[in-house]
């Protein structure tokens, strides 16, 4: 505290902030790190266009001839088409449902001043620490008794429910950081509490909601464990399950690394695109306490 005040007292004009260390050593290091990440993505994509032989023998070389066939094979042999559709519907539905349920809860817990709110929020936070493998067996019993095994509805409900700890925790924090003035003004204008929530607070929290949506989609797009346990019919399998099935074939029908990387690319690319498209929102959501 005192340091800061002391520094504050010395406040003068704008100065050069970067030292020589940062400019000549630091920045290159950061870009090296960044370049490594880009290289990994490029390597993943390049590998998906190589033959298995090339991929294993010379993992770092450029493809001799681009093997578009890899994608065709992964798509058809892995049955990716219907799986992609299932995944898209499931993930979109889950994200929407998560927000629909968590947003009111987050709002209520942060801004309604209920006595139990604090404890309730902590209770949700504890849920963050429960690993999926720890609860899947009893969960099977719950799902089974509700007739929700082997159903996309069931899996979607499960995803929504297991998203609750993070979603509520996140949105509680987010709503808490919104300015109170607008809400108070609305109250003075005679707005109903519901109207205040729906028309004022929710739009204010938009960037937080988008962030949550995106993180939720990223998280569930690749979810394998619950899908494996709770989906049995092929017609209902999700993209990660299709991918897993495709991988399992390799020991007996010949290692198909080209096809495997193509499959992985098919799974990863939509998320990369979504991330690039909405990625700024994540950062915005994290950074901003107040939406626009």
């Amino acid at each position: 505290m005192s340091t800061i005040n002391a520094i504050r007292g010395l406040r003068r004009h704008r100065t050069q902030r970067t030292g020589p260390f940062q400019r000549f050593l630091g920045a290159p290091l950061v870009w090296l790190f960044v370049a490594f990440n880009v290289a990994v993505l490029a390597w993943l994509l390049l590998s998906s266009t190589k033959t298995t032989r090339d991929l294993i023998a010379t993992p770092w070389s450029l493809p001799h001839a681009i093997q578009w066939d890899n994608f065709a094979r992964a798509w058809s042999a892995g049955n990716f088409g219907p799986a992609a559709l299932n995944s898209a519907v499931l993930v979109a539905g889950t994200a929407a449902a998560t927000i629909a349920v968590a947003a009111p809860a987050g709002y209520a817990l942060s801004r309604l001043g209920a006595r139990s709110a604090e404890g309730m929020t902590s209770l949700f936070a504890i849920g963050l620490g429960i690993p999926a493998q720890a609860i899947f067996l009893p969960l099977y019993a719950v799902m089974n008794s509700l007739g929700l095994v082997d159903s996309l509805w069931g899996l979607g409900l499960l995803y929504t429910a297991t998203s609750m700890p993070f979603a509520v925790f996140f949105l509680t924090g987010f709503f808490r950081s919104l300015p109170a003035e607008l809400e108070e003004a609305a109250a003075l204008d005679g707005a109903t509490p519901w109207y205040t929530f729906w028309r004022i607070m929710l739009p204010l929290a938009r960037s937080g909601l988008v962030t949550l949506l995106l993180l939720n989609v990223i998280g569930h797009w690749g979810e394998t464990f619950f899908a494996l346990v709770f989906i049995q019919s092929q017609s209902l399998q999700t993209l990660p399950l299709a991918m897993l099935g495709f991988l399992q074939q390799m020991q007996y029908s010949g290692a198909d690394w080209g096809g495997m990387f193509a499959g992985i690319a098919i799974v990863v690319l939509p998320i990369v695109v979504l991330y690039i498209w909405l990625g700024r929102r994540i950062i915005e959501g994290m950074t901003l306490g107040s939406g626009k």
Partner: peptide, 21 residues
């Protein structure tokens, strides 16, 4: 499709499978 329906019914009936429900 019919088969899936059968299985769902069958699966739903094994409430005791996990000895807990």
């Amino acid at each position: 499709k019919r088969n899936r329906h059968i299985r769902v019914v069958v699966t739903a009936c094994i409430a005791g499978a996990l000895a807990m429900t």
